[in-house]
Design a binder for these strands. Structure first.
Lengths: 358, 358
DNA sequence: CTGAAAGCGCTTACAG
DNA sequence: CTGAAAGCGCTTACAG
């Protein structure tokens, strides 16, 4: 391993070069010249010497002595998922503004590995970008025992036997109820009267919330039509199979809201293959506004997931907890409906130029 | 800030509880029982006590004393880009296998911020998942001076005045030449004879490599047809405008290879809007095999970017450098052609069931 | 306004 | 096989 003794200079060396005590140099470089009432002349001198020597403080020594690290663990349930990636990204941008440092751990490493990393590095707080089956109520209990505040950002894994920890941890996520209301309003405006819902994976909090919201709201407009699958199919296959089932059972629909965009695109695939006109015969709405929504044909109306805001808000909440403001909060961020071709007429396919030369 | 003095127990406490010296406990818990010839009985006793007390070593103290950290900085040029996300993910999974620890820094923080983070935490090595305009040759010179080995994984920012550092840093990226050969072979097999190429952003290494590879290989088959844009348009707009230009100039083509999938999807959008049949009239191939490739209509033939392998390989290279194996390597990983509807006939739209009830 | 000393929790020689 | 001591580079009282 590289030996770097010669390349890194220390506070002691700076103080010696500046001909002041170690203490004085430390105070100046920690930005405490004012409170320690160090003369401006001395401060300037020390700063200049530190600059020319290329002094960079050793964070490990600092943390060890100060008995706090300002390191925030970030658990990422799935970095390949664009929503988690966006939330993680927002958190990484936000932490430095509060003089906090990220320590990223990924789900694939396994819980014990993550735990070791957090504890060895003496994290001062923890943000979960999603959770998985390993994140049991016991995990949150240990964090609490060790005085490590935690916040969950985004979707989380929620089998019925896990729900006990919910009142004990702060959450920040999309307002699925509001999102569903926006989706239904939008479709009702388009005179749709048989709006179906395709469910998502059973143990995802967002899937549960969206299903509940659909059931609760749709009653005001029509009979409930739920396309549920008893399989573990995910991604577009789920939407494809769900619609296949509906059509095989000869259930009449004129619109479908899918748990998420991938499921919605599966539904579109099925409709396209069977020459069902979108949106005239069946309109489609997804959730999350993934990049795929813009690129599908027809492009997909979706509910924008405010990932940036979720990330920021979860950092703010964690900072409050670090400052011993221990009130648990569950924050719901508003989604935005992004209308595209899958629910609206005449937005594309009308630009018939440039074909003459073929 | 949380005070955790009471919740974290130290080596000293373990050794006291086990009634051995601090040194003995340290040796056992660092896994050096054998080399220090500590009796198995003592080792077992210490381990058990450490376990029951919940001892977790303090990484900061370790690093400070040992004068090395095994922390690897990871610079991510764009976490929202699925390719960078996938490479980053692979690196995060790979590092722990070598007993190395990641420290993630993102481009948006700015170079100076990243630099401070790296140096304060005394990183032992650095992997760039992409670079940007701030990563000048001087940056690599400083790393070299400080004995911090670096590896670039994936695409990198390459204006002509930056190329000086290339012989001094190890690179791992997709083999664009091989990818282009695969793409052209595939199209030639489909009897295509007027294959155009749509360029990418000027300063991206992948864009430069792909353009060069196209020019070099296509000469064996046909006249060169390059759709270049003097704009900064990115994403699908770039492909859309490039094809528009070609069609306006009445240039005949029967296939198009795009710099990447988003550009390819822009081309598809243009062809769809002008009722040009894909792939019969014009076939389309993209690079990177993004999720969007599967979800576009028609689905897009693309070259799979081996992100997982790139991440793994870059960690391996870095490990070699940490072990003072200082030979610089430029590694090219093979892409895989994923054929889909945009180059092949009759793969979809033939499943005309379930429409009767509408 | 400035300085000398203790100590955070480990690892690394060195002694026996 | 086991132990006592020094020191990594800082910050934190405390003294003057």
């Amino acid at each position: 391993m590289t030996n770097r003794k010669k390349t890194n200079i220390t506070l002691a060396e700076v103080s010696k070069a500046a001909k002041v005590s170690l203490n004085t140099a430390a105070k100046v470089l920690a930005g405490q010249s004012k409170t320690a009432r160090i003369s401006e002349k001395t401060a300037k001198k020390v700063q200049k010497i530190a600059q020319t020597l290329g002094y960079v403080p050793n964070q490990m020594a600092r943390n060890l002595r100060a008995q706090k690290t300002r390191i925030i663990g970030i658990f990422v349930a799935d970095m390949i998922d664009p929503i988690y990636a966006a939330i993680t990204h927002a958190i990484l941008e936000e932490l430095p503004k509060h003089n906090l440092f990220p320590l990223l751990t990924v789900a694939e490493a396994g819980y014990e590995m993550c735990r070791q990393t957090w504890l060895r590095n003496r994290i001062d707080g923890l943000i979960f970008c999603g959770t998985n089956a390993e994140m049991t109520p016991q995990v949150f209990a240990e964090l609490k025992k060790r005085n490590i505040p935690a916040v969950i950002a985004g979707n989380y894994y929620l089998p019925s036997n896990h729900s006990a920890f919910l009142p004990q941890v702060s959450l920040v996520h999309i307002d699925n109820h509001a999102g569903m209301q926006l989706a239904i309003n939008h479709l009702v405006e388009q005179k749709k009267q048989k709006i179906a819902f395709i469910t998502g994976p059973k143990f995802h909090s967002d899937a549960q919330d969206r299903l509940q919201a659909y059931e609760y709201i749709i009653k005001n407009y029509q009979k409930t039509i739920i396309a549920d699958l008893n399989t573990d199919e995910r991604f577009w296959q789920r939407g494809y199979l769900a619609l296949k089932k509906i059509f095989e059972q000869n259930i009449k629909i004129d619109a479908v809201i899918a748990y998420d965009d991938l499921v919605a695109i599966g539904a579109i695939k099925f409709l396209n293959e069977n020459s069902v006109n979108i949106p005239n015969d069946v309109a489609v709405v997804g959730f999350d506004n993934l990049p795929q929504a813009e690129y599908s044909t027809p492009s997909l109306t979706s509910l924008y997931q405010p990932a940036q805001a979720i990330g920021q808000r979860s950092v703010e909440l964690l900072v409050k907890h670090l400052e011993h403001e221990n009130k648990i909060e569950h924050v719901h961020m508003m989604p935005v409906l992004v209308p595209r071709e899958s629910t609206q007429f005449g937005n594309a396919r009308n630009n018939q130029n440039y074909i003459s030369h073929l």
